[in-house]
Structure formats: structure tokens, C-alpha cells
Amino acid sequence: MSQTLESAHGHHPAQQHHFATMEQQFSAAKLGMWLFLATEILLFGGLFVGYGIMHNRHPEAFVAGHHHLQRPMGAINTIVLLFSSFTMVVAVWASQTNRKKLLIWGLIATIACAGIFMVVKYFEYSHKIHDGLLPGKFYSYKGPQVEGEFMFFSFYFMMTGLHGFHVLIGMIVLAWILIRAMRNEFSDQYYAPVDLAGLYWHLVDLIWIYLFPLLYLVS
């Protein structure tokens, strides 16, 4: 704590008045972000609990329901998201090491991957909507089905919907970071926003890592 009293390097313009040093500010911000990520996990967690219990109650219905999903689409999206996580982490590393071009291109690649993810999702959704595989009372699929199959789609839409919403928010945040990066705001002295946006983006990826087998690969 002794170093926190005075900063040997003067004040960085991004340093807020109530922090003694940039380091203190950074660790507060990072802790805040991790706490926020913890809340996100518990938010999604509720859906996972609901899914687990309803899956146990209607196992055949969930297996039958998942046959309507296209595994290749899900797999492609998994790969796209994993790759975007990679480009994101490279962007963070670039900002830490003052590689401005790499930072900008990393962010652009990440946003592009998010875009691809949403486009694939759009095709999947429109396919479901066309077949009437909608949640709750809008379910109107007429083909052969198991009792309770509609519930699988309730969960499919709630879980991928909430996740998709997070992808959208992520795209907005990353676009904002990209603009700031192009304005040369980040350096090895100050890269917290890139780092935090990266953490958020990896969490979105992390959740998809679980959603993919749960929804697409039910056995």
C-alpha cells in the first residue's frame, strides 16, 4: 500500500480524482468487471437450472426438440465465437504493448465475427419461425412430435435470445472501444477499457460454450 500514496509518474489524463494511482484505478475497475461477470453467470444460471430440471422431467421431448436444430449452424457459430475470442485477446495484448494497428484490426475482426454469429442466428431463427417452432403459446408446429416438445423451444429461444442480446451489447461496446482506439486513446499506460470489454466478450463466448452442447447436442 505504501506506493499508493504518491504516484511517481504524475497523473494520467484518464485518472479519476478519487484514485491515488492508475494502478489502484485499474484494479478497482477490473474487480468491478469481474463482479459484474459473476452476476451475468448467475443470471444465465437461472436459465440453466430451469433447463436442467425441465430436461429431467421431459427428456424425450428435449431430445426430440433438438432434432429440429441444425448442428452445423451451431458448430459454425461456436467456431466463429471462439475465433472472435482469440482476436479479442490479441487486441488486448496489442493495446498493452502499444501495437495500435493490431489493436484496431483485432477489434474489427472481433466485431466482424460477432456480425457473422448474428447472421447465422438470423437464419436459424427464421427457419424456426417458418416451421412454427416458437416459444410458448406461439408454438404451432404441426409435424410429428413428442408431448412437451414445445418446452424445448421455450428454452431454446430464451437462452439463445438472452445470449444473442449480450452479443449485440458486446458489438456496441466493442464499436465504442474501436472508435476510442482509432482516436489513439489507449496505450500501455491506459488500456483498461479494452481489457474490460475483452473480459465481457470472453464471457459471452464462455456461455455459448455451454449452450452449444446443451441445446444442439442433447442426447
Partner: peptide, 23 residues
């Protein structure tokens, strides 16, 4: 740690009311 679960519970309740998702 607990409030997010309230968040998802209220979301599920609204879903149940509006869409009758069944949970």
C-alpha cells in the same frame, strides 16, 4: 451474487405470463 437470480426469475415470470413458456 443473489440479485441476478431474482432478475432471471422475474424474466421467466414475465415470459410465462406473456408467452406461456410452460416452466
Amino acid at each position: 451474487m443473489a440479485t441476478p437470480v431474482l432478475g432471471i426469475t422475474t424474466v421467466l415470470l414475465v415470459m410465462e405470463r406473456v408467452f406461456q413458456v410452460g416452466i
